[in-house]
Each structure stands twice: as C-alpha cells, then as structure tokens.
C-alpha cells in the first residue's frame, strides 16, 4: 500500500530525528525527570518486596514469633528499626508489611478504575439523560467524606484486606468517573470518532477501542497519585483498628501498636510512618513526572 516515495522520505527523516512510538516518547521525557525516576525505582523496590516477602522472610519464625528476651532493643546494626514489645524485629515486620499495604492501595485504585472508568466514559460519550443520571449518582457518593464512607463500608464488608480494598476503592469511584468523563468530552467530537462510526463500529466498540485509549493520560496520572492516597487511607483505617488486624503486620497497625509505648520507645512509631511517607512521596513524584511527560503543555 505504501508509496515508495513516502517510504524513502521517512527513512531520511529517521536519520535526523530518532522516531519514537508515543509510549517511547513518554518514556524518553520521563527518563529526564530525576524525581520521577527515583520515585519509580522506589515503587519497583516496593513491588519486589511485596511480591517476594515470603521468600525473604519466613512468616512463622521471623515475623510473628515472639522472643521476650529480645524485647525493646533500640535500633542497632542487627535490628535497624529495633524490636517491639514482643521481641520481634521491626525492620522485618515493616518490610513484610509492604505486602499488606501496597496491594491494598493498588487494588483499591483498580476497583475505583474498573467502576469509575466505564461510568465516566458512558456519561461523557452519550451525554444528556444518561450523563445526568450517572453523574448525579456519583455526586451522591462524593458527598459522603471519603474516609467516613470507607469506615461505613468496612462495617458491612468486615475488617480485613478484602473489605479494605473494596471500601477504599468505592470512595474513589466518583473521582475517576469525573476525570474520565471530562477527558471523553474533549475527544468525543473529534474526526476519528466520526470515522469509526462511519465504518459501522458499535457505540461500545467506539467507547472502548477508540475513545478510552485516547483519554488515558490523565487517568494514568490519577492512578499513580491515587495509589499513594489510598495507602494513607488504608493505613489510617488499620491504625483505627478497622483494617488489617495484627498479628499480620501492616504499616498502619504497626504504628498503632507502637502508640502504646510512645513514651519510652518512640522509634516504634518513627519508622513505619517514615516508610509510609516515602512510599507516598515516591508515587506522587512518579505521578507528577508522568503528567509532565504525557502532557508537556501542562508543564510549568
């Protein structure tokens, strides 16, 4: 099909400017952003720890086994974060806790995405009555403050990881629906949508194969920023005793356990909080970097 002339032209162009795929272009710009790269590396490390926590540590002997002869050892070389009131190594528990905190944050955002993205896309694409109904329902969900909604849902779903993931996810649905809707509105009247309709694509095909792929960049950014937030909410809930319950370590419940001994052993509250903060910073830096890389117009 391709004209040979055009082909030679492209080849000569390739010599001057390296041609990149859209994703390659984003990656190229992202790579120049130091903050995003450091954040991304930290996120990768966390994912690795979360996936292989049971290879690194043995749950029964290294995470939950009590050894009262070793209680309250201040941070030292052998125990970088010290030991808790039951003689368990806090560093091991924080590292193992990555596997509780990170999945909750990630899955919660996935729940929000799976519900919010189609709702927002349908509302934005069809407009009119459908849009009104969907967005008013989203308004109702958004009117209940996030953490209160999550607390109420946990009362129904029960505490524990699954309940936590769904509860936190549902609270973020309106945000994803709104962002998707706004970005669908900006592309739905463009020519390629009309072209897809002209060749006989069904509405569903148009939405999922043509419209959504062209609206992804604000959504990807939102995902990265939201994961950090969800991790904070999840650890808050665990801190309140409404999330992951001991003896399974989770960053929030480690903090809550340290609260009792805050007077004499403040290191017990220091480290888990520091790790939560670094994690959220990492996701935020990555999200900010992605936003700048995907939409250079927005960059200040």
């Amino acid at each position: 099909m391709e004209n040979t002339n055009v082909k030679t032209n492209t080849v000569s162009a390739q010599k001057k400017y390296k041609k990149r795929t859209p994703m390659g272009e984003v990656w190229h710009r992202l790579r120049k952003n130091k903050g995003a790269m450091v954040g991304g590396a930290f996120v990768l490390l966390l994912v690795f720890l979360a996936l292989f926590r049971d290879v690194i540590y043995d749950y029964d002997t290294q995470i939950v086994m009590q050894d009262l002869s070793k209680r309250f050892i201040h941070p030292c070389l052998e125990h970088p974060f010290g030991t808790d009131n039951l003689g368990r190594d806090l560093f091991a528990r924080v590292v193992y806790g990555t596997g509780s905190s990170l999945p909750v944050g990630v899955v919660a955002v996935m729940v929000a995405l799976v519900l919010g993205l189609p709702l927002g896309a349908i509302a934005g694409f069809f407009g009119g009555k459908i849009d009104d109904v969907i967005m008013r329902i989203m308004d109702i969900f958004a009117a209940v403050p996030g953490i209160l909604m999550a607390i109420a849902m946990v009362a129904v779903l029960g505490t524990g990881t699954i309940g936590l993931m769904i509860s936190i996810g549902v609270t973020a649905v309106p945000a994803f629906a709104r962002i998707t809707r706004a970005s669908v509105l900006s592309v739905r009247n463009q020519e390629f949508v009309e072209a897809a309709r002209a060749i006989g694509c069904t509405n569903l095909d148009i939405i999922f194969k043509h419209v959504i792929p062209n609206c992804l960049s604000p959504i990807v950014v939102q995902v990265s920023l939201r994961i950090g937030n969800s991790i904070i909410t999840a650890s808050s809930m665990s801190y309140l005793g409404l999330g992951v319950t001991p003896p399974m370590p989770e960053w929030g419940n480690l903090l809550s356990a340290g609260r009792t001994y805050i007077k004499d052993y403040s290191y017990l509250t220091m480290f888990p909080g520091l790790v939560i903060m670094l994690t959220v910073i990492a996701f935020n830096l990555l999200g900010d970097g992605l936003r700048d890389a995907m939409d250079p117009k927005l960059k200040k």
């Binding site: 650890s235 808050s236 903090l255 909080g273 939560i276 903060m277 959220v280 910073i281 935020n284």
Partner: peptide, 8 residues
C-alpha cells in the same frame, strides 16, 4: 507535608 500521614 502532602505525603506524611497525619496520624504519624
């Protein structure tokens, strides 16, 4: 400030 969990 944005990343520090407030209970911490």
């Amino acid at each position: 400030g944005l990343a520090a969990p407030n209970f911490w």
